[in-house]
């Protein structure tokens, strides 16, 4: 079977199946005629990026931002959270770029990842709200008795921070430990961990954002 035929086979089956159940990710962000050419262009850029073309990669990622925002917005993500979803989606796209099949729709591929990340963001937001609410209740029902509680609170906060760092994904935890806690330089940390300095920077950025998110409203 030729590569073209193999790529077309599942596509036909996919559209047949989508007629059957409707499908779950709507990617119609622009009018069909206008989006056809731009989508093909994005697909070509992503295919070139898979082969290592940095310029094409920059273009396709920059071109994807609007689509990610539209998908996240449709999923119900608040306006001020859209950029977080964009960042998370771009990072995921980077990690799973090998799963894109250039014979298929780039927009459908991207929209599925963006929708997933938007839902993750909404869930995380929901958990944070619940935690903040229960913390407020706890504070109201257990007012500070004396000064020693201040000390205990600080110890407790340090413990929570340690636990939060420990709960980070390995790459992010490593970045915080090397760059934040042990105060190593980027070059030193890169040498010790075997990761690129860019990866460390991205991981630190994500880790700090996660920690900020987790402790938001606690300080």
């Amino acid at each position: 079977m030729s590569p073209a035929l193999t790529a077309d086979g599942p596509m036909v089956l996919d559209s047949g199946l989508s007629l059957w159940t409707g499908g779950d990710v709507d990617v119609s962000v622009e009018p069909a005629n206008a989006s056809d050419a731009t989508e093909r262009r994005r697909a070509a850029w992503m295919a070139a990026a898979q082969a290592g073309d940095k310029r094409a990669y920059e273009r396709v990622l920059a071109d994807s931002v609007a689509l990610i925002r539209a998908v996240a917005h449709r999923q119900g993500v608040a306006h001020d959270q859209l950029d977080d979803v964009v960042q998370e989606t771009l990072l995921t796209v980077h990690r799973v770029r090998h799963t894109y099949d250039p014979s298929r729709s780039y927009d459908a591929w991207l929209a599925a990842i963006a929708a997933r990340r938007a839902i993750d963001g909404l869930r995380k937001g929901g958990r944070r709200e619940r935690r903040e609410l229960s913390d407020e209740r706890a504070m109201a029902s257990h007012p500070a008795a004396d000064d020693t509680t201040g000390q205990a609170e600080r110890a407790q906060q340090a413990e929570r921070l340690r636990a939060a760092i420990a709960a980070l994904p390995p790459g992010q935890r490593e970045a915080v430990e090397q760059l934040g806690l042990k105060e190593r330089s980027l070059a030193e940390a890169a040498e010790r961990t075997g990761r690129s300095t860019t990866a460390l920077k991205v991981n630190l950025h994500r880790a700090l954002k996660a920690l900020r998110g987790r402790f938001h409203g606690d300080d």
């Binding site: 989508s18 159940t21 499908g23 779950d24 990710v25 591929w109 990842i113 997933r116």
Partner: peptide, 11 residues
């Protein structure tokens, strides 16, 4: 396992 494929594959 591929983003963008339909859930209906599960049938």
């Amino acid at each position: 396992g591929v983003p963008g494929r339909r859930r209906a594959w599960a049938w």
